[in-house]
Amino acid sequence: MSGPFKPTHQGGAALTLDSVEASILRSLTVQLLELIGPGDEPAADADPLAGLFTEGPSKAPQDPAIARLFPDAYSEGPEAAEYSSEFRRFTENDMRTRKRENCLALVRSLDRAPVGRQGDVELELDADGCRSWLGALNDLRLTLGTRLEITDDDGEELYQLPDDDPRKPQTMAYLWLGWLEESLLEVLMDD
């Protein structure tokens, strides 16, 4: 395997990031956490049972990146809008929680990983950790991809943006995340 993730004997994956990479990944993930937000959930000190009965939002999110993470479930027929909003009320809070948990797991593993002599962060993920990372990496790509307005026609030119292009830093991060994800998938899908 040529990518950055290597399979471990315990069925997980190991990854070493240099300090700059680790800090970029951490900061992108924290931004995603802020973007996903707590949704319409009650405050932490509220009645814990209340959360079970709290309905989610019924309208699609305004932010296109968030709308991409939580799309409408129905797109056809006269009742599509009504059904989508009903679906959203009963699922979106739960979905936000799960996406947030993936991000938190990624941040926690970065913070807890041993740091090598050069400042390298040496991660070892178990199978659950791999799944959380995969989910978080993919959600990061989706949000960056939406911000960058990536289309099917964007291919090689993404790699050839001039240095003074304002999209360059985000594009580099987007491509790097894609490369990390591919490598993790290679480990996970190895038969």
């Binding site: 991409r68 993470l69 799309p71 479930a73 129905y74 797109s75 679906f87 979905m95 989910g135 993919n138």
Partner: peptide, 15 residues
């Protein structure tokens, strides 16, 4: 559909 959205795939359902 909820599971697909959880994975980040764009999915819908219809009759």
């Amino acid at each position: 559909v909820q599971a697909m959205h959880g994975y980040g795939l764009w999915a819908t359902l219809r009759h």
